[in-house]
Design a protein around this nucleic acid. Structure first.
Lengths: 256, 256
DNA sequence: AGGACTCATTGATTTGCGTCAACGGACAGG
DNA sequence: CCTGTCCGTTGACGCAAATCAATGAGTCCT
């Protein structure tokens, strides 16, 4: 299952797993009882860059939670793969497949050295079926992921390649207010695949963005005219915005 | 909010809403108490073809459940819209937005005259926060929708226009085993937008599919060589398959 | 019957972006 | 030092699909 160049380091479960989960804010509503129950059935795993986490069509044996690093989800056909999504910590990895006991629709691979919490699938499912607060937290995670998917679909459908790049850079600039130069967060080829295009297309489009106040030098972005850039590539919260995971808390008692 | 040519018919809530919900199999695990509580805060609505259900960026005031008919979700930019997904009954309409009190990412419009159950948003949210079984059912719906989205993304990314058409027709044929001719389920322009292409492209591609045992005459598909068709456009359950909504049941008691 | 719709088809043309290929810089290892 | 590999850039080319445009076929309405 894990094909890695370096052998994965599997820490003894228990303590570290519990601590990890208690540190996650969107799990703060879940009782320690439930979390430690899950922790007992968990393993914390550290996987090197490039390691394959699971294969498309595989049926999940664990619920995986990404604690650190990033992983990419790849749709596979024959021998070619195209990127579907990049997952950031802290989040569940395709909870839909685990909950439904259904085969994964994509392949998952480590992009930047990742720390994963693996919870035995049936332990996870029965915990969700037993603990309302956990159920709400998973629901919140799943809902957030759904919206992210839909935003991606919108971006690809109604923006051209150049616009996607522009919006990406504007969003980046807005996340670093006041700064005039900043480094690109990842390698350009990753940006390209994240934006649904080839490296060549990205490479060709970048110089043209100087016309809108965005200059790239090597791996750093120089914001020369933010107003112009925002004008050309308006930040759309319904596409570029990122919602946090925010579960509701269970209530009980009086319906009225 | 509802701009319809014919005025929407709003039935008195209570009884009919409750009956409607009790008839939904994936809500069968939810107590009658909770359902009737929701029913009290609900309205059943019948909307004609073309009616707009809600607008992109609007914040949901209701949780909408599609009971009959179909609705389409459209990503909007300026004055052009592109189809993101088609919703079939019975399912929740973008529960993620309702749960998170977040703006809708898309516009929703009635394709075939639709019956909707509108549940007041806060009543719905508090019911989910209160009733574990309901929470599980909503989670199942949301998870299924997530997987559907991902399948769509895969289809667009790794199949050409012709392949998407072929796969669509093969899936259609497989749903009518033994039959040699069948009518297309919807108008061709709807098929085109569902498959992410223009009508013209669809129109041009259809005749060429005869080479693979699929002939179209007007609005009916004639399966001349199913084996050939399946060979050219293999049915991939990880793209073409449809999972039903199947919620878990709440359990309680002994963790072990 | 005759307009006025919408839907589908077909043609001509354009174009965005992918593909193929070659090349240069940065690094690492023998 | 030279030689591999990886990443990015640039050029030439091709192609799938969109766009623009015109023409039937079917249906509804008066």
């Amino acid at each position: 299952m894990y094909q890695a160049s370096a052998q994965p380091l599997s820490l003894p479960s228990g303590a570290s797993a519990l601590e990890a989960m208690q540190a996650i804010d969107w799990l703060s509503g879940v009782s320690t009882d439930t979390l430690s129950l899950l922790a007992e059935r968990s393993v914390v795993l550290r996987l090197p860059k490039g390691a394959q986490i699971f294969e498309q069509a595989e049926t999940p044996g664990f619920c995986q939670m990404l604690l650190a690093g990033t992983i990419e989800l790849l749709a596979v056909r024959d021998s070619e793969e195209t990127l579907v999504e990049v997952l950031q910590p802290v989040d569940l990895v395709l909870p839909a497949a685990v909950l439904g006991e259904l085969p994964y629709l994509v392949r998952a691979r480590v992009r930047d050295e990742a720390t994963l919490l693996l919870i035995q699938a049936d332990a996870f499912r029965s915990a969700v079926a037993r603990d309302h607060a956990l159920c709400l937290a998973v629901l919140a995670s799943q809902a957030t992921q759904f919206r992210r998917q839909m935003k991606l679909a919108k971006a690809v459908r109604l923006r051209s390649a150049e616009e996607r790049i522009g919006s990406f850079l504007v969003a980046l600039a807005l996340r670093h207010p006041g700064e005039a130069r900043m480094r690109l967060p990842v390698e350009k080829r990753h940006i390209a695949s994240q934006l649904g295009m080839t490296r060549e297309t990205l490479s060709r489009a970048l110089p043209t963005l100087a016309r809108h106040g965005l200059r790239i030098e090597g791996d750093t972005l120089i914001v020369e005219d933010l107003a112009a850039a925002r004008g050309a590539f308006p930040f759309d919260p319904l596409i570029d915005g990122r919602d946090p995971i925010k579960p509701m808390l269970p209530r009980q008692g009086n319906p009225k």
